[in-house]
Amino acid sequence: MKNRILINSLISAVILTVSFALSLAIQNLFRTQSLIPAVFVLAVFCISLVTQGYIAGILSSLVSVLAVNFAFTFPYFRFNFSMPENLFSAVIMLAVTVMTSMLTTKIKRQEKIKAESDKEKMRANLLRAVSHDLRTPLTTIYGSCSAIMENYERLTPEQHLKLLGEIREDSEWLIRMVENLLSVTRIDGERVNVIKTPTVLEELIDSVLLKFHKRYPGQQVCVTIPDEFISIPMDAMLIEQVLMNLLENAVRHAEGMKELSLNVHTEGGRAVFEIADDGCGIPGEKLCGLFTGYLEKEDVPADGKKRSMGIGLSVCAAIIRAHGGEIRAENRKPEGAVFRFWLEMEGKEHEQQ
Rank of each mutant, 00 (worst) to 15 (best):
L10V: 11
L10N: 11
I11L: 13
I11V: 11
A13G: 03
V14S: 11
L22R: 02
A25Q: 14
N28Y: 08
Q33C: 09
A38Q: 07
F45P: 10
I47C: 05
V50D: 03
S64M: 02
F81S: 01
S82P: 00
P84T: 01
N86F: 00
L87V: 00
V91Q: 07
M93F: 00
M93G: 04
V96R: 09
V96S: 14
M99L: 15
S101G: 15
I107H: 12
L127R: 00
S131W: 00
T136C: 07
C145Q: 03
M149W: 06
R154C: 06
P157K: 01
L164H: 07
R168T: 13
L181N: 04
L181I: 06
V184T: 01
T185M: 09
T185I: 10
K196R: 13
T197H: 02
T199A: 03
L201F: 15
L210V: 11
H213Q: 15
G218R: 13
D227T: 08
E228A: 12
P233M: 01
M234D: 14
M237T: 13
V242I: 06
E248L: 09
N249V: 02
M257L: 11
K258E: 12
E259Q: 14
S261T: 14
T266G: 02
V272M: 08
K286H: 12
G293S: 11
G293D: 08
L295A: 08
D299K: 03
A302T: 07
G304K: 04
R307T: 10
S308G: 13
M309F: 00
G312C: 03
I319K: 04
I320R: 04
N331V: 05
R332M: 07
R332P: 00
P334T: 04
G336L: 05
W342T: 09
E344R: 15
E346Y: 01
H350Q: 10
E351Y: 02
